[in-house]
Design a protein around this nucleic acid. Structure first.
Lengths: 210, 210
DNA sequence: TAATACAGCGTACAATTGTACGCTTAACTA
DNA sequence: TAGTTAAGCGTACAATTGTACGCTGTATTA
């Protein structure tokens, strides 16, 4: 393998993927995209598409997978930034928003297919977001003295808030986006603060009882 | 007006709307629905559709509007339940989840078109959710001593968390759903608790400064 | 009662869609 | 080198789509 043949195949495969990604935009979703459109954009005959994917759904799942890779890199980036700069929440939100601004189409893909028509898609996206939650959950449990359950609940809340803010930011002007960002940061602070408070209240009552 | 003629017209109009609503499901979204499908389901000729709506988008916006009515009734219901039972958060979440379970298709419509292809749709849904945020915001400001800004930020966070939980609940088994509900309630508590804490911290430092 | 308005229908057409089928041609294998 | 494999193409076809156009029959209006 890895001969001229396989190489060329991989090349057109990428062409298809890129064509699909390129066609994503505010008013063009993956589900509203036809096989022929993708083929046209990729510069191949419609029927050649089948040499690479069973159908559009298969291509879509590949796209979701690829965007998962991008997302995980995002997390790594955020982590190293946090080590440099300190403020966890601020840095995380900044990094995430930067990602959304730079890859609006990938984000839109996840956003739409999360609630889309295809169960396979929904599941795939849910899995990607789950990754996010679990990584953050571990981080929180390690960093602070949350028990695993509380850490997960907190992480889930944080991810939900950030992810949603990203979704809303897509349609916004820069200044509006800035205000949203600030509110989001506050919400994350409140959530974290409240969780800490809950831990404290629990341990206080435990002490009183002893 | 209100003659036989106008009455019949209103009747078929409702038939169209109902047909569209009926066709919404987990694997059939409004955007993937054709004019002809709706017409078929409504028992009219495809071309007759135009006697009532300019195009599918116009019908969609009407649906969003109608679901807004349902949502607002939901809020009213929640409020009267709270007066009866007391626990604000628990009751709100219960009521909301009940709504989602009872009107999954309406909820799916909002969920999907919120991030959909049509700017008009996105805006319409955003507006409905905004209603939610603002009503809750007012309620919070009145009930507690939050300033308007903080109240809004808090309300936004709460609505985001609940709405999202509803979205995830759609695909879940009852027991999984129950666990989600419990986590959501915790998240709402933390958020509220954190906001109160923030207010307290502020007023404490203000006192020290004086 | 005569004239008008209009909801609903059927026909028609051009686009577009997914995909079955068989061919070509270049890379691979033995 | 001879035989095989398979990526990519073109043709073809049946479905389906949105919608333009003109007709019909009935409720409304004058």
């Amino acid at each position: 393998m890895s001969g001229t043949r396989a190489l060329q195949k991989e090349k057109t495969r990428q062409a298809i993927i890129n064509a699909a990604l390129a066609h994503l935009s505010a008013d063009h979703s993956f589900s509203s995209m036809s096989l022929r459109e993708v083929a046209r954009e990729a510069g191949i005959a419609p029927t050649s598409f089948y040499r690479h994917f069973d159908d559009m759904e298969a291509l879509g799942l590949t796209l979701v997978d690829e965007s998962g890779v991008t997302l995980r890199e995002l997390m790594r980036q955020a982590r190293s930034r946090i080590e440099l700069k300190g403020s966890v929440i601020q840095t995380s939100v900044d990094t995430f928003m930067e990602f959304v601004e730079r890859n609006p189409n990938i984000f839109r893909l996840l956003l739409r297919e999360r609630t889309g028509i295809s169960p396979a898609f929904r599941e795939a996206v849910a899995k990607e977001i789950e990754h996010f939650k679990e990584e953050l959950s571990e981080y929180l449990a390690q960093e602070s003295n949350y028990n695993p359950q509380l850490a997960y609940t907190l992480a889930e809340g944080l991810v939900t808030l950030v992810f949603n803010a990203g979704a809303e930011a897509l349609d916004m002007e820069p200044e509006e986006r800035k205000a949203l960002k600030e509110r989001t940061i506050l919400q994350l602070r409140y959530l974290t603060l409240g969780a800490q408070q809950a831990v404290k209240l629990e341990s206080d009552t435990a002490k009183e009882a002893s």
